[in-house]
Amino acid sequence: MNDQRTPLLSVRDLKTYFFQDEGTVKAVDGASFDVARGQTLGIVGESGCGKSVTARSILRIVEAPGRIVGGQILWYDAKGQPTDLTQLDPDGHQMRSLRGREIGLIFQEPMTSFSPVHTVGNQIIEAIRLHMGVSKAEARRRAIEALRQVGIPQPERRIDDYAFQLSGGLRQRAMIAVALSCDPRLLIADEPTTALDVTTQAQILDLLRELQQQRGMAIMLITHNLGVVAEMCDDVVVMYLGRVVEVGSVDAIFHQAKHPYTRALLRSIPAITTPPRVKLHTITGSIPHPYNRPSGCPFHPRCPERLRGLCEVAEPALRAVGNGQSVSCFLYENRA
């Protein structure tokens, strides 16, 4: 892994809007970031900030009335040749051969992520046969192997189980097995541990890290859990209301956060050192209604450091502030 900083995926000014009768929801409104080969990128933000829609935009499985209305999603193949995924037919052969083969996806809810009327094996074998062009028997052998790799005991038997017969932890392992069955280069994990209890969470995160080291794949980890980010990620993207407000290495974000929103997020984490019986810090205000996002910087109504006459009028752009860190905030405009 000598070229660790070469990008695998490069999202440029992505805009995904949902067109509804009541108005247009700008779920993702100009997001830009890179995922480097073999690295883990964390995407954090409150629910509704567009994290999940970003993931679905990359896979081109945004559902109507949602649509990608602008930007680029550049996917670099093994030779480093970029393809703009936004230009592909979502149901076309090229896009489908990426899905499941090059990019795997795991979801928050392992129970509902499996069909209730198909066996786990059926769903793994389906993916293997679709992308690898192997015989049924070979696909089954590989599926069992995939289940074994994610630490499912007795995979020969478990392969014929239904999802509702497995425990929560095993289900999420099976989900990972499905996503990794074709050895993808990027794994998108959308809140992979949210629905699990704390012990199982740790196990699943360990498993993901282990598998990443074995295979050298990149992970795009979507979460609102900053603890998970600190543990897993190399780089972090902070999103607010469909926009990227800050990007940086995990060290930079946790130790030298620039954007007021990132800093507020970090303050709201309880630490061992936090004195007991003290009210936990919260971010003032609440997320604006998606139909009427604020003018100017979307965070300005809640921002303790807003610059009057500027933040509510103009939108700040994402600017590098050195050390691989970028931020979109007027507080740093002149220093850039």
Partner: peptide, 20 residues
């Protein structure tokens, strides 16, 4: 979500809907 994961596996839309 299982419909979404089936799509994410690269099946054609037709097959996703009919099978799942």
């Amino acid at each position: 979500p299982y419909v979404m994961t089936a799509r994410a596996r690269g099946l054609t839309e037709m097959r996703v809907i009919l099978k799942y």
